[in-house]
Design a protein around this nucleic acid. Structure first.
Lengths: 199, 199
DNA sequence: CGAAACGTTGACCGTTTTCAATTACAGTGG
DNA sequence: CCACTGTAATTGAAAACGGTCAACGTTTCG
C-alpha cells in the first residue's frame, strides 16, 4: 500500500522531475523557505524537524526509502519544517510549478496525488491512534501488529529500535524494556532483527 | 484556512450531495462498512472511534462544524473507524461514486479535493507534533499558541476543555492542573471562556 | 426542577522519564 | 589488521510526571 518510484515516474512528466543525491546532514529544504518542489525519497533517511516558537525542536517524522516528502506543502507558500538528511539520500525532486500546472489540466494526475494524500492521512491517523494507547507495552504491541506481515505475523526490522521509539513517542529505553517485557510474557519472540508475534 | 460549506456547494454538483440530520448517538458510518459517501459536518459534533484488535476503543478525532469526515476513505474499500454522533449533527452527505466519476473528468474538483487532503495532512502533522511534547504544561501551551489569534494572542474557547484534553492526549484533570499551573506562572490569563497568552 | 456533564482540586500510585553505566557492533583510518 | 570512535542496544535506580480515584461546586439542558 505504498506508491513506488515507478508509480511516480509514470504519473509525473519527466520534464518536472530530477534525481539528486544529498549527503548526510544537508537539507532538502528548510522551514519558512518558499515551496519549490516535493520530494520522493529513493534511498537513505530524512528527518522532518519543526522549530517551535519557544525555540525547541521536535521531530515530526523520519522518512525512509519510498516515502514522499512535502506533498502537503504543495498548496502552502512555505515549508513548515526542515528536512534534514540523516543518512545519505537519493531523492527524486519534483518541481512544484510545472506539477501544479500539469495537474490543473490532467484529472489523472490530480486524482493520483489525491490518492497519495489520502494514503498519508490514513497513515497519520494510525500514528495518532497509537499515541492514544497509554502504556508502553500495549503501544509497542500495536505498532508491531501494524507492521507485521504473514501468518504467524512477523516483522523484519529494517530500522533501529531507536527510530521506532521516536516514531511512537517513547524513549528508546522504554522500548527495550517493553520488548523484554513482551518477550517474558511470551507475547513475542525475537531472533536477531526478526520479531514474531505470538498468541 | 478551512473549507466552508459554500466552498463545497460550489465544488460539488448538487446531484451527488444531500443535507441530512443525525440524532445524538447514531452513526454516520461504522468501521468495516463499505465506503458509500464522504461527509461535511455543518453543525453538531461527531466522534471518530477505532476498534483495536484487542477489543479496546480509541478516539481518533472529534469533528466539529465545518470539518469533513472520511475524505481519506474515498479510495479505501471500507471505513477504518466509526463516526458516532456526540451531539445532534446536520451533515452534508456526498456520494462516493458520482463524486469520483466527476473528479476523474474535472481537474478543478480533483485539485480541490487534493487541497482539502493536503490541509488535513498538515493538521494531522501538527497534532503529531503536539504529541511529541512530553510535559502537560508545554503541550497545552503549544496547543494554545496553535489556536491563538491576534496580538496579544487570544483564544476564545468554543469547545470544552474535556474535548481539548482528548485531542492532545491528556486526561481532563491534567488539563485543568496545567491551566492552573500556567496561570500561576503568569504565562496565561483566563477570563471566562477567553484565554490570553502572556510573555 | 433534576439529571447529566463540565469544571476543579486533592491525594496516591504506577509508569515513564531521566541519568548513568556497560556491552555490542559497524565504520574509519593508521 | 587492529585500535579507535560513535552509535545502538541493554539494564538499573531514582525522580518526575501523568493517570486514576474521589469529592464537590457549577453549568447546561430536557
Amino acid at each position: 500500500m505504498q506508491f513506488t518510484l515507478e508509480d511516480w515516474k509514470q504519473a509525473i512528466p519527466a520534464s518536472c522531475r530530477m534525481i539528486t543525491d544529498y549527503p548526510s546532514s544537508t537539507f532538502l529544504f528548510r522551514q519558512q523557505e518558499p515551496v519549490v518542489a516535493i520530494y520522493l525519497l529513493i534511498s537513505g533517511q530524512v528527518r522532518l524537524l519543526r522549530h517551535l516558537e519557544d525555540g525547541s525542536v521536535v521531530t515530526l517524522h523520519i522518512s525512509r526509502h519510498g516515502e514522499t516528502l512535502a506533498e502537503a506543502a504543495l498548496f502552502a507558500s512555505h515549508y513548515h519544517c526542515d528536512a534534514r538528511v540523516d543518512s545519505a539520500a537519493r531523492v527524486m525532486v519534483i518541481d512544484k510549478a510545472p506539477l501544479l500546472d500539469r495537474m490543473s489540466r490532467s484529472p489523472e494526475l490530480s486524482l493520483y496525488l489525491t490518492q497519495v494524500l489520502a494514503h498519508q492521512v490514513r497513515h497519520l491517523r494510525s500514528m495518532l491512534t497509537l499515541r492514544n494507547i497509554r502504556t508502553a507495552d500495549a503501544r509497542l504491541c500495536a505498532w508491531l501488529r501494524l507492521h507485521a506481515r504473514g501468518a504467524p505475523p512477523v516483522i523484519d526490522m529494517d530500522q533501529t529500535w531507536k527510530t521506532v521509539a521516536e516514531e511512537i513517542g517513547l524513549t528508546h529505553e522504554v522500548i527495550y524494556r517493553a520488548l523484554a517485557s513482551l518477550q517474558k510474557q511470551g507475547r513475542i519472540k525475537r531472533d536477531g532483527s526478526r520479531v514474531t508475534l505470538l498468541g
